[in-house]
């Protein structure tokens, strides 16, 4: 087990290194912060000054190694757009908002998708199965920004049940979290359904039926507890896609999270912040998957030996 964990960890680290290179080259290829920062009537002197000031006149590989050295120490440089803060500070400031919203979205998807998936499996082929899959699929069939805007208009502006947008308590989070979660519900429902179908076919379930165990107990105690492992393995991917989803939803709902920050940083060519936000996303994703791998290996020993 220790060896499995070490290997996985080293692999993740290696991935991270490659990601730094990609992120660094991409951000530097996209132009210069000078282009975004300077006003329309910038003079040549202003352009030259700022280039020097930001260290953009040094050779690219020198800039990369400086970046790598500092990044290893958790220093991503100073933000060019949020002047006065380091890039890492800017990102850390915004991360909690994204995690709150992502967490609620995750909760909503689980609470809706798992029962939906179980019911769809138990009543496979019935109209309930069909309705469940249509409900689940609806969220995946609409662009999230549009769904978000429609939710905002109906439930905030017209009905007044929730605030339209902005940062705040749970009431502020409900609409954006639903808009984000709905997209995931389809995937999670499908997964739960197929896992349940597989388990429900198993011998021991048939045996339990023969023994006269109640249907409720069969479904939830015997079948679901065994099928649950499958959705768990999906949480790594889910976490990643929630982060990506945050980019759009946070824009629509003016939610001051890391997704909105990422867009602003890219548009503002704020390389240090772009680099740190992507690194945070990547580390988060790799970590989530690392944990899922370990969890999975603990539950299912065969995995350890597959490499």
């Amino acid at each position: 087990m220790a060896r499995f964990i070490t290997t996985r960890f080293l692999q993740a680290l290696l991935s991270l290194l490659v990601i730094t290179l990609i992120v660094f080259s991409l951000s530097h290829l996209t132009g210069s912060p000078i282009d975004a920062l300077l006003p329309d009537d910038a003079t040549q002197a202003q352009i030259d000054n700022l280039t020097r000031e930001l260290g953009l006149d040094r050779p690219l590989h020198v800039q990369y190694f400086t970046f790598l050295q500092n990044a290893a120490l958790g220093d991503f440089g100073d933000s060019t757009k949020w002047k006065g803060s380091s890039a890492a500070e800017v990102v850390i400031d915004r991360l909690p908002a994204t995690l709150q919203l992502g967490g609620l979205a995750l909760l909503i998807s689980v609470v809706v998708a798992i029962p939906l998936g179980v019911v769809a499996a138990v009543r496979k082929g019935s109209s309930i199965d069909a309705v469940a899959s249509v409900i689940a699929l609806l969220g995946q069939s609409l662009p999230a920004f549009w769904l978000g805007l429609v939710l905002m208009w109906v439930f905030a502006v017209i009905l007044g049940w929730f605030p339209t947008s902005g940062y705040g308590g749970v009431t502020h989070m409900v609409l954006p979290a639903i808009a984000m979660a709905w997209f995931q519900i389809a995937a999670l429902t499908r997964l739960t359904r197929s896992a349940m179908l597989e388990v429900l076919d198993a011998e021991y379930i048939k045996l339990a039926r023969v023994k006269g165990v109640s249907e409720r107990a069969i479904v939830w105690r015997h079948a679901f507890s065994n099928a649950a492992i499958v959705p768990i393995t999906y949480f790594g991917v889910l976490a990643g896609s929630l982060l990506t989803g945050s980019v759009v939803i946070e824009t629509v709902f003016a939610w001051p999270g890391a997704g909105l920050l990422a867009i602003d940083a890219i548009r503002g060519r704020d390389f240090p912040v772009v680099q740190s936000v992507v690194m945070f996303f990547a580390v988060f994703f790799l970590l989530a998957n690392f944990l899922v791998d370990i969890l999975y290996a603990v539950i299912d020993p065969r995995i350890r030996h597959q490499g």
Binding site: A12, S15, V237, L243, T244, V248, V277, A282, L286, N289
Partner: peptide
């Protein structure tokens, strides 16, 4: 792993 870990939307923006 790396492609999954890179946020595709941000990559597209860049």
């Amino acid at each position: 792993d790396i492609t999954f870990a890179l946020p595709s939307i941000l990559l597209a923006l860049a």
